[in-house]
């Protein structure tokens, strides 16, 4: 996967952010995200062949204001990095009846490099598609003999941010065929289903109307390559399923819950729409 070749560097954007402080200034969609002056992020690329409704895919970063964008360009400014650090603490902490930590089996978090780009993926032993949360909880219950973490619990958010962060800069590459195909098809079906009393599908907002404003919100393509993302509004990390839940609720629909088989399928499909975009975990959004 070729990296974008623009020579525009992070510093230029950071300066623009300073000048535009307090206003809503938008960076050019072709601006390049470089994190810490070294990790180049693919924020815009050709859509994968299986995405019928888009020619070009763009990270949610390209839809945010210059101020929000700049928070993601340096880990010292990224408010989510504190949670990544907390994730390292629990990575090293023994928990559960087996008295083991993640580090006991996996050594450094770097051993997880590349994993985020493949998730969700088919788990042969379980006979279903698994997200990162499901892998983490299987380790906790089976190998550590500890309590599973709740989908929205802080330790789970911190751990998914830490593990995802190891793949930052690598392009998303989830598999959509083979045994995962039926789950992917289910997610695709959901993506185009017009839910709720407002009868709106994910595609209505994120495929037909990205770049348009809906009230005060600048609609993005609803990509998941930055998750868990730090939301300034919530001052915390949020998981993709939590975001899906909010979006479906906003159509005046009965939502699904985090970790439900429906949301696992939707996560696989939405992730596949972003194949080729770099992992940005933990991204910053408003």
């Amino acid at each position: 996967m070729a990296l974008a070749t623009s020579t525009k560097i992070a510093l230029g954007l950071a300066l623009a952010g300073g000048v535009a402080a307090g206003t809503t200034a938008w960076a050019d969609e072709d601006d390049i995200l470089v994190i810490n002056g070294e990790t180049e992020i693919i924020t815009k690329t050709d859509a994968p062949a299986h995405v019928e409704g888009l020619d070009t895919i763009r990270s949610g970063w390209t839809f945010r204001t210059v101020e929000t964008q700049s928070l993601q360009m340096d880990d010292f400014d990224n408010p989510a990095m504190i949670f990544v650090d907390q994730g390292i603490d629990s990575w090293n902490a023994a928990d559960g009846a087996a008295g083991k930590s993640c580090a006991d089996c996996h050594e450094d978090p770097e051993s997880m490099t590349g994993l985020r780009t493949k998730l969700p993926k088919w788990n042969e032993a379980a006979g279903e598609v698994w997200t990162m949360e499901m892998y983490i909880n299987a380790c906790r219950t089976e190998r550590m003999e500890a309590e599973p973490w709740g989908w929205k619990s802080q330790p789970m958010l911190n751990m998914t941010a830490l593990i995802g962060n190891q793949s930052r800069g690598l392009p998303m590459a989830v598999e959509i065929d083979g045994p995962a195909q039926a789950t992917w098809e289910q997610g695709k079906e959901m993506y185009y289903t017009r839910y709720g009393q407002l009868e709106l599908s994910c595609a209505n907002c994120h495929e037909d109307n990205y770049d348009n404003y809906i009230r005060a919100d600048h609609l993005s393509q609803g990509q998941t390559n930055g998750f868990p993302v730090y939301r300034l509004k919530q001052a915390n990390l949020i998981a993709a399923h939590n975001r899906f839940k909010g979006c479906i609720r906003d159509t005046r629909a009965e939502t699904y819950s985090e970790g439900s088989p429906e949301f696992v399928a939707l996560e696989l499909y939405v992730a596949s729409r972003g194949n080729g975009l770099s992992v940005e975990t933990p991204a910053v959004r408003n």
């Binding site: 709720g196 005046r252 009965e254």
Partner: peptide, 10 residues
């Protein structure tokens, strides 16, 4: 409707 909700409660 498909999965109609109770206003915006989810």
């Amino acid at each position: 409707f498909i999965r109609p909700g109770d206003a915006y409660t989810g």
